[in-house]
Design a protein around this nucleic acid. Sequence first.
DNA 1: CACCCTAACATTTTT
DNA 2: TGTTAGGGTG
Length: 724
Amino acid sequence: MNYLEGLNEEQEAAVLYQGGPLLILAGAGSGKTRVITTRIVHQIESDIASPYEILAMTFTNKAAREMKSRIEQYFGGDRLDLSITTFHSFCARFLRREMAYLDRETNFAIFDSQDQMGVIKRLLKEKGIVEKREPPNRLRTIFSNTKNSGDVTAEPGNEFHASLYRAYNDNLKRQNALDFDDLIMLTCHILTEFEDCRNRYQNRFRHMLVDEFQDTNKAQFKLIQLLTVADGDLCVVGDEDQSIYGWRGADINNILDFRHSYSGVKTFKLERNYRSTQPILDFANAVIAKNLNRHEKKLWTEVKEGESVQILPAQNERDEASLIGNVISRQLTPPQYRECAILFRANYLSRSFEDAFRRLGIPYQLVGGLKFYDRKEIKDLLAYARAVVNPRDWTSCCRALGVPSRSIGARSLELLTPYFKTEGQSLLALKKALADKALRPKQLNAIKTFVPLLEKFSEKATSERPSVWLQGLIDALDYRAYLEREDEGSAEFRVQNIDELMSAMSELEQQGVETMAHFMDYTALVSDQDELDDDCDKISLMTVHAAKGLEFDHVFVVGLEEGVFPNQRAMEDSPNALEEERRLFYVAATRAKRRLVLSHAQYRQTFGTRARTFPSRFVREAKRQAIAPGPSTDSPKKSRIGDLGLQLSLIEQQLASKDVSVEFRPALKQPRYRPGDSVEHATFGAGRIVGFLGRGTGTKVSIHFAGKGTKLFYLDRVPLKKIE
DNA sequence: CACCCTAACATTTTT
DNA sequence: TGTTAGGGTG
């Protein structure tokens, strides 16, 4: 039983418990992964379960991979027949086997959000609906929520939306495509309707574990229930304080009410933290204690000593970035960069840091943002792959048709689409259109060469390894030359990306991915974290969402301003949003192992206009807790340098104090107005101040007038009156 | 149909 | 400020 060594009392109890459903409330950094993997090891070692009977669900491939390899390592490195996988991968694999139950083909395509948007936009156009009235993105969210509800028959409440929803689903079905939410929903559907199928899976997976349970939505919880027999072995692990995916349908009540969903649920709390110092935990505990919707929990550690949480005010976003950049480059030497992260609420906040780090020569990696498989060149090539794997994927066929450009534009596609609707398959449609001479000669000629190309690669797709297939395609299209022609500047980078795609393919081939069809699932279901390269020594820049589950010695949470973090839009959406924003901040804070710095800028440029900002309520709370009093205005010189405990050389002190003096330079000529103020303009009437542009005498003020748009005025000349 | 220019829009988070 | 969608022209 040496695998139990080093576990604390609660961890060990959770690992060994075998009396039915159990809920492990695992605080941040409490050794959650270790408990899950040890529990699995224990079940295998003591013959409670064979690997074949175990199913563990996670949200990212990275987490799944990590758990699996830890377990296999314990057993000497042999590969085990263990199902540790993400919800979406599990369902994709399930449907590839079982789709026949629904009388549908198993070679379906998986549509990502871009594909979904394309379908929705085309739908709106067909119906003559203006996008302004029904924003495609909003429809996508509505459709997604509907599918995540856990009820297969559910439709959007609004009848008009419901009709669009039906049309959307018909369209996907015609293309033999599923969106992300379909994967979960249809799996639930089959398991609900077909008892024999359900029994097969329930008999096989007698031991189930769910990681990050607080992030499950209703449909995912239903899936869990369908896979588990009533008194079966189900272990869910999570932390409601880290539930940050409510906007994506995750239902925090799944974890809060879990004890009522099954009878005889045993609960374990893991509160001992192995990651951070006590000062950081004190702060985090105080932050999250303000939330009401939670189980009481308090993290503690034996590492009582540590730096207190620091607050770093900056003049503007440029300052914020270069100050932090300076701190980092002074204090950290290269092998430590990987132990450092910049966390922000939204992706756009990364820009100033990228600029500053590039200027200072600090290596960094941006996690998330534009995903690898979302890049144009990758998508172009994969469009061919998708069109070939699924002969009914018209969307991808159209995309492939346009790359490299074959003089077939929107108008031609419009003429071709009816053919697809009657023929049902892309290639058949193109052939019929050829026979009918449905287009002008130039376009027909293009199609005449495209059809055999696609046919050839369709054949090769089943016989060749993915990397060989792709290389053949690149050669046949003379794709590199095409990239050169398109845009010389970006060609080199794009070719690099293609090489990267090739090597990703080879790597997966090593792991047993033999066909293009198989490879496609992988490309559709990668997450941001999967792309994090933790082998190289770079500072990580990422959103707080992307940082969940990770840890760093040094964490800088930046952009802590009202409206940014907590995010204004989120708070307008729902009354519970502030609690979620707070949880998000809690997640950010608990990523730090040794040092936590909170920064905010007093002016921030958004949409090209600079605006006065106000420190986030999270920062104000931190100050009130007197964890780290900020620099007082009357002693600017001492200020942040002392706070940050930096050991700076004289030159750097001067450099830094220059930054400091920036902060305390006399207030700008921008007296009584603030963004958000209601004002009365002599000619335009009532308006609201959006922000300020420039500084000094040339400062302009941007004012929004309802119905008349936003206008710019010189601040020192504008005839303005404040409305209280 | 392809190219270029302008205007409008955007910044929440993403499997 | 940066990107992108759509309109107009060649």
